[in-house]
């Protein structure tokens, strides 16, 4: 979907293993994950149900977890083989925003001190007056002023305001990529869209790309250009957002879309059509064939035995034997 020479982030055949419980058996929380983001600023959603491996992938990209197999290239550089000077460069270029804004800030510390610290350590701005100015700029971007936060502690702001503060702080380093792990799921519905609008706006104005992690396909459709659907550690389908959400290829994507409750009352009757549910998730993670086989209405013998490889169909990439005929 993107030309090789213009790649911002490339994740290749990534495998990350964990153990269930303390002495439990090993399983692949990420199993041969491939993903590419182009240089052109874009928002790519990583969607999938709880436990599918979304945060694990985010953490591998942020250099928190080292993968057992595969590589992550950021602008052509393997992020697990960076030199010391490159580590700082990487931390400037790739910023993160997490689900709970209150957990990202120490309740005893004034918010402004975080801005000072980031400005000094990562953006190399030392003068107080200059710091003030750049902080004012990034705050303006999220609809706040320095006076709104200067003397405040985190709990003196609402969740929506604090999440905007977190975005503003991330902007200070002029990053190229933001990893946003469920950035709006803890916010009230009436604040959510204003945070999403900020993503759209800074994508355009600051040329920043986003990896937007969510399980909410409606907000994903609203802001994204691309989407990848993760299931039990495997990306089953990825491609342009309109393609994947309007003409889904993988049986799981189809099931997911059909199961979405909507505000459209005409969908009620359909919503009540009985469905098949997963029961034992460990079994699915350990499946050697397609991870979706136990719930798939089209499953054949082959699907149980062998995992399907990626296949390009139209503008998307899908991992399903149905498309290998």
């Amino acid at each position: 979907m993107i030309e090789r020479s213009k790649i911002l982030l490339e994740v290749k055949d990534l495998v990350k293993k964990f153990r269930y419980g303390l002495f439990g058996f090993e399983f692949k929380a990420l199993d041969k994950v491939n993903l590419k983001l182009g240089e052109e600023p874009s928002i790519c959603t990583l969607a999938g149900e709880s436990g599918s491996g979304k945060s694990t992938l985010a953490k591998v990209i942020l250099r928190v977890y080292k993968p057992e197999e595969g590589i992550v290239l950021y602008r052509g550089k393997n992020i697990y083989e960076l030199k010391k000077s490159e580590v700082k460069w990487f931390r400037k270029e790739v910023q993160a925003i997490f689900q709970d804004p209150f957990a990202s800030f120490n309740p005893m510390r004034k918010i402004y001190s975080y801005f000072q610290e980031t400005a000094k350590s990562l953006a190399d701005i030392k003068e107080e007056a200059e710091i003030n100015k750049v902080v004012d700029d990034v705050l303006a971007e999220v609809g706040l002023r320095i006076s709104d936060i200067k003397e405040k502690y985190p709990h003196e702001l609402s969740g929506g305001e604090l999440q905007r503060v977190a975005i503003a702080r991330a902007l200070l380093t002029k990053p190229r990529l933001m990893i946003a792990d469920e950035p709006v799921s803890m916010l009230d519905a009436s604040f959510r869209v204003s945070v999403l609008n900020i993503f759209k706006q800074v994508k355009e104005e600051y040329n920043i790309s986003f990896l937007y992690i969510t399980h909410d396909l409606a907000t994903s459709y609203y802001i994204s250009d691309y989407i990848a659907i993760l299931y039990r550690g495997t990306i089953l389908e990825r491609g342009p957002i309109d393609e994947v959400l309007k003409r889904p290829l993988h049986p799981y994507t189809k099931m997911l879309l059909e199961s979405l409750p909507t505000l459209d009352l005409r969908k009620r009757e359909y919503y009540m059509h009985p469905i098949r549910l997963s029961q034992i998730e460990e079994k699915e993670f350990l499946a050697t064939g397609c991870k979706f086989v136990s719930r798939c209405p089209y499953a054949e013998e082959k699907c149980k035995l062998q995992a399907p490889p990626d296949k390009i169909v139209n503008n998307s990439i899908v991992r399903c034997w149905l498309y290998h005929k």
Partner: peptide, 19 residues
């Protein structure tokens, strides 16, 4: 209701001011 994004619709939406 007007602030909620809907699948299949990219029309710009606004949150409710204040909290």
């Amino acid at each position: 209701l007007a602030s909620l994004p809907r699948l299949g619709d990219k029309e710009l939406r606004q949150g409710i001011r204040g909290s």
